[in-house]
C-alpha cells in the first residue's frame, strides 16, 4: 500500500503535490496518538471520506449529480446491523452491506439513467427519501425513530481506525488506477461528450449504471463501517441532509478530485464537531458552507491549496 502511494506520488504531479497528500494521510493517522474524541472523529472522517470519494467519482468523473447517496450509506449500515442481529458473522455482514447497496443502485439506476441532468438530481433525491421513509416507517425491522443499536459488538477503536484509513487509501488508489483504464477513460468521455462516444459505438447507459453500482457499493461499505463505529444507526442518517453533506465534502475538495474528497471529509468533520460544541444549528452550518463554497470557491478549496502550495495542475 505504501509503495502504491509512492507510485502515485510520482505519477500524480509535482513532488510538492505528493507532499500535500502525504500530509493528508498524516492528518488521518495523527489522532492515533491522541486517542479519545479526536480519534473518534478521525475514524468518522475516514469513513465518510470513503462515501465522499465515491460521490466524487460519480459526480466529477461520471457527471452524475446524485443527491441520494445517503440511501446507500444507510442501507449499508442497516444491513450490517440486521445481519449481526440475525447472528451472521461479521465478515459476511460486511460483504452483504455493499451488495445490498449495489442492488438498490441497480433497481433505481434502471430508471435514473433514462433521464439526465436536473432530472437525475430529482430522481435520486426522491429515491433517497423513499428509502428514508421506509427505514422510518418499518419500525418492526429497523426500530424506526429509536434506531438500531449494535450492542454486543466491540471493536478496538485503533483497529477500526486503521482498517478504515486503510480501506480509504486502497479505494483512492484503486479508483485512480481505474480512471486510467479504458473503462475509466470511457466514463470521462461520457461525461465530456456523451453524444460523441455513443456515435462511436459505446452503450453509455451500461457504463453509467455500472459506475452507479460501484459507487453505491463503496458507499454501502462506508455505511457499514459507520454502523460499527457508532454502534448505532438511526433513520435520520438517511435523510437528505446527509446526502447534501456528502456533496459539501466533495465540493470543498473540488468535484474532480478523489484526494480532494478526502480533504473535504476531514475538514468538514472536524469543523462540524467544533461548531456543534457551541451551537445546535447544524443545518445552518452546512447550508452556509454550501452556499459560500459554491459562490466563492467553486473549484473547491483543495485545488486552491494544491495550486498555492503544490504548484501543480490539481487533478485527481
Amino acid at each position: 500500500m505504501m509503495a502504491g502511494l509512492s507510485r502515485e506520488v510520482r505519477a500524480g504531479g509535482t513532488a510538492r503535490q505528493g507532499l500535500l497528500r502525504w500530509g493528508l494521510v498524516g492528518l488521518l493517522l495523527l489522532p492515533l496518538a491522541l486517542g479519545g474524541y479526536p480519534l473518534y472523529l478521525a475514524t468518522e472522517a475516514a469513513l465518510l471520506g470513503l462515501a465522499a470519494v465515491a460521490l466524487s467519482l460519480l459526480l466529477g468523473h461520471g457527471g452524475v449529480p446524485s443527491l441520494g447517496q445517503a440511501a446507500f450509506l444507510g442501507l449499508g449500515a442497516y444491513t450490517v446491523g440486521l445481519a449481526l442481529k440475525a447472528g451472521l458473522p461479521l465478515g459476511l455482514a460486511l460483504l452483504l452491506a455493499p451488495l445490498v447497496a449495489a442492488l438498490l443502485a441497480l433497481l433505481t439506476g434502471l430508471l435514473v439513467f433514462r433521464t439526465h441532468g436536473i432530472f437525475i438530481l430529482m430522481l435520486t433525491l426522491a429515491f433517497g427519501q423513499m428509502v428514508y421513509s421506509a427505514a422510518h416507517k418499518w419500525t418492526g425491522l429497523t426500530g424506526g425513530d429509536d434506531g438500531l443499536s449494535l450492542s454486543g459488538l466491540s471493536i478496538h477503536p485503533v483497529l477500526l481506525h486503521l482498517v478504515a484509513v486503510g480501506v480509504l487509501l486502497a479505494a483512492v488508489g484503486g479508483l485512480r488506477a481505474l480512471l486510467q483504464t479504458p473503462y475509466g477513460k470511457t466514463l470521462e468521455a461520457i461525461r465530456q461528450n456523451e453524444e460523441k462516444i455513443r456515435s462511436l459505438g459505446v452503450p453509455t447507459f451500461y457504463y453509467k449504471l455500472s459506475l452507479y453500482l460501484l459507487t453505491a457499493a463503496l458507499t454501502g461499505l462506508a455505511g457499514s463501517g459507520l454502523a460499527l463505529h457508532r454502534s448505532f444507526i438511526s433513520p435520520h442518517d438517511l435523510f437528505w441532509l446527509t446526502s447534501a453533506t456528502l456533496m459539501v465534502m466533495v465540493l470543498l475538495g473540488g468535484s474532480r478530485g478523489l484526494w480532494g474528497a478526502v480533504f473535504g471529509a476531514l475538514l468538514y468533520t472536524f469543523v462540524q464537531a467544533w461548531v456543534s460544541s457551541f451551537t445546535d444549528l447544524w443545518g445552518l452550518f452546512v447550508g452556509s458552507l454550501l452556499v459560500l463554497t459554491v459562490l466563492f470557491a467553486r473549484e473547491g478549496l483543495w485545488p486552491l491549496l494544491e495550486r498555492r502550495l503544490g504548484g501543480g495542475r490539481g487533478n485527481a
Binding site: G117, G287, L290, V291
Partner: peptide, 22 residues
Amino acid sequence: RELEQVLVTIGLGFILADLLRA
C-alpha cells in the same frame, strides 16, 4: 450553471430552516 444553482438553494433551505428552528 444548473447544478450550482440547485446547491445554493439547498444550502439556503438549510439555513432558513435552522434559523426558524432557532
